[in-house]
Design a protein around this nucleic acid. Structure first.
Length: 347
DNA sequence: CTCCAGTGCT
DNA sequence: AGCACAGGAG
């Protein structure tokens, strides 16, 4: 099962190290308590053997929650660092308490993102979509931001940009104009953004709502934005951020969702399990992440998720925070999941 | 072929 | 929880 012969994080650490596993029952309620315990009996802990550790590491879910501690340090125990897998992380820290080393993790990702030329393909709305509408009134600009958000889901940035340009060239970037325009015309102008038919229809509905309820402007509250057709949590927070400069919450897309879970940064409330939806992730993340990071966390993790921490086969070997990541080297094997045996081909 | 990514509808 | 939407990428 554990296919690789790599112990997570081992190849990144150059100094001599000792890996230690402590059973759940021995772990105190806090990291500090566990740390103290290890300090008091360092010799005993050193007896653990590497193969056993790897065995344990891959055996989650059978009740033996483990805390994996790597004593990385040369002379004294002062430089001891902890590596906690996500299951245990939720056991030993209550919801809302910042995860261990999150600042180091963030710094590491920032470093990778600056050196790596990630084609920050934000799949969200980049500045380009906003710039088009820059020479308009504030209200028009806000409306353009809303439309950009609507169009940008499931769509590459340059495609969204093109669609916005087409709309602008036809003076179709105001609620009034869109309300009067033919839906088919809008559809053709925004093609080929993802789901263009549905989006054209939603644009018409949104324009009508903006006219009738908001005087042609866009809603200024999260709740009202969410009530618009085609605007879900992700885009609603994005629009609040950009159009109103009002940070009501973190804009969580699947990259943020996936990476936060891999890092053990979020857990389902009341459980020790991963969050299962972006909304759960947003709520869990907002419990502890300082508000200064609420906006930058999205582009940071999106770029990271596109280049290194990819959905399939994450590039843990080139990730400089793999030693801090409880999921490092655990999803590298593509042949680890076989579920499709029932149907081969239907004729 | 499978996987992907927000929203909405069952 | 699963699917539709409309395609792109591997």
């Amino acid at each position: 099962m554990s296919t690789s012969d790599t112990v997570p994080g081992s190849n990144e650490v150059s100094v001599p190290e000792v890996r230690v596993f402590v059973r759940k029952r021995k772990v105190k309620t806090t990291v500090e308590a566990a740390e103290k315990e290890v300090k008091e009996e360092p010799r005993k802990q050193k007896l653990s053997a590497l193969p056993d550790i790897e065995e344990f590491a891959y055996k989650k879910g059978n009740g033996s929650a483990l805390i994996k501690m790597v004593l990385q340090a040369s002379q004294n125990l002062q430089k001891m660092r902890f590596f906690v897998d996500s299951e245990v992380a939720s056991t030993i820290r209550s919801a809302g308490e910042p995860p261990l080393n999150w600042e180091k993790v963030l710094e590491g990702i920032q470093k990778m993102r600056s050196s790596e030329d990630a084609p920050v393909d934000t799949m969200g709305m980049s500045q380009s979509a906003c710039l088009v509408a820059m020479q308009a009134t504030l209200e028009e600009r806000r409306f353009a931001v809303l439309v950009s958000a609507l169009l940008s889901s499931q769509t590459k940035d340059h495609v969204t940009h093109g669609a916005i340009q087409h709309l602008q060239q036809n003076n179709l970037l105001t609620a009034d104009a869109i309300d009067k325009a033919d839906e088919t015309v809008i559809k053709d102008l925004i093609y080929p953004v993802g789901f263009y038919t549905r989006k054209a229809s939603n644009m018409k509905k949104i324009a009508k709502i903006c006219l009738s309820k908001y005087n042609g402007d866009i809603p200024s509250s999260l709740e009202d934005l969410l009530s618009l057709p085609g605007i879900g949590p992700k885009m609603a927070h994005l629009v609040m951020n950009i159009a109103w400069n009002n940070v009501q919450g973190i804009c969580v897309d699947t990259h943020v969702h996936r990476i936060c879970n891999r890092l053990g940064w979020v857990v389902r409330p009341g459980t020790k399990q991963k969050t299962s939806t972006p909304e759960e992730t947003r709520e869990a993340l907002q419990l502890w992440l300082p508000k200064d990071e609420w906006v930058p966390i999205n582009p940071l993790l999106v770029g990271f998720g596109q280049t290194i921490c990819t959905p399939l086969r994450p590039r843990c070997e080139m990730c400089c925070i793999s030693e801090l990541c409880p999921s490092a080297f655990k999803e590298t094997s593509p042949a680890s999941k076989q579920k499709k045996s029932g149907r081969n081909k239907k004729l």
